[in-house]
């Protein structure tokens, strides 16, 4: 207990130092030197740049992508992407208002203006496109496998025949396993986290769902490891008000810019990249 307290105190001190460093930078290097006049009059970009602040929705409980730590500030890849987009509007990190958007409220949060954009492991699909517009994708997630580090039998999805694969009952990954990998024995639990103990006790051989969720488990538990290439594609996009085409094009331009100049890779490696391999930047879908 004492060591943990000491560690927490040390972390806190480091965080304070880091904050101090940012402050002394005078605005930091995140925000680009732009003002409202640089954007077409009446556009969302002009409005946000003029206000000097933005409301970004993200997850608060998704390790590596959007997770709020003890200091109350969300951290992760989604958060970094949000900061980069805000920066291109000339908005400082400190002027971003982070709002928790759990999966079920994302469309409504955009529709009623609770948030300006959403960066929250938000998979682009046709049903959602009817309610919101998507910029991106900025990352392609996909179904993968998590095993014990000591497991040598499963190196990828080709090795799961005859193996017990744990997943969530009634989920898309379960559906995919049943349809496309009939040789694997699917063991469905209520939630993905229920699979961890059976995996440790060798009652199942692997857990399968989106690599992002698996990477979160791997980051929290030293004895677990994400195995093999992902075998489905879930494109993560930035959600914004439906049919705000100017704003969507702007965000797409920002994404292409950060793909090129290395800031995207930098953001990845500082967050999710600590557990997951660094992918090639995806291709923007300007639908």
């Amino acid at each position: 207990m004492r060591t943990r307290m000491t560690r927490a105190a040390a972390l806190g001190a480091v965080a304070l130092l880091a904050l101090g460093a940012c402050a002394s930078n005078g605005g930091g290097d995140g925000a680009a030197d732009v003002d409202a006049g640089d954007f077409p009059e009446g556009s969302t970009m002009a409005r946000l740049a003029d206000a000097g602040s933005i409301k970004i929705g993200t997850k608060f409980d998704q390790p590596l992508f959007g997770l709020v730590g003890p200091n109350g500030v969300p951290e992760g890849f989604d958060v970094e992407i949000g900061k980069l987009v805000a920066g291109e509007l000339g908005i400082d990190e400190g002027d971003i208002e982070w709002i928790e958007t759990v999966s079920s409220v994302r469309e409504d949060s955009i529709a009623n203006g609770t948030v300006d954009i959403i960066v929250a492991t938000y998979t682009i699909n046709d049903t959602r496109k009817e309610k919101v517009s998507f910029a991106g994708p900025y990352y392609l997630a996909g179904q993968s496998l998590l095993t014990l580090k000591t497991n040598t039998d499963i190196q990828g999805v080709d090795d799961i025949g005859g193996m017990k694969i744990c997943t969530a009952s009634g989920s898309t990954p379960e559906q995919n396993l049943l349809e496309n990998y009939p040789d694997a024995e699917v063991v469905p639990f209520g939630q993905y986290s229920d699979c961890l103990e059976p995996l440790r006790n060798n009652q199942v051989h692997a857990i399968s769902t989106d690599n992002v969720i698996l990477a979160g488990f791997a980051a929290e538990h030293d004895d677990l490891e994400v195995r093999g290439e992902q075998f489905t594609e879930e494109p993560y996009g930035i959600g914004l008000a439906k049919d705000d085409t100017d704003f969507r094009n702007f965000i797409n331009d920002v994404l292409e810019k950060i793909f090129e100049d290395g800031r995207w890779v930098e953001a990845w490696e500082a967050t999710a990249g600590t557990v997951l391999p660094t992918p090639e930047p995806p291709t923007i879908d300007r639908y």
């Binding site: 009952s169 379960e174 559906q175 469905p188 639990f189 209520g190 939630q191 229920d194 059976p198």
Partner: peptide, 19 residues
């Protein structure tokens, strides 16, 4: 038991609902 690796009626319903 539907939440604990038994595919009985409720778990079957969840699967079909997803499909």
């Amino acid at each position: 038991a539907a939440g604990f690796a038994v595919v009985e009626l409720v778990a079957t319903g969840r699967r079909l609902g997803q499909a």
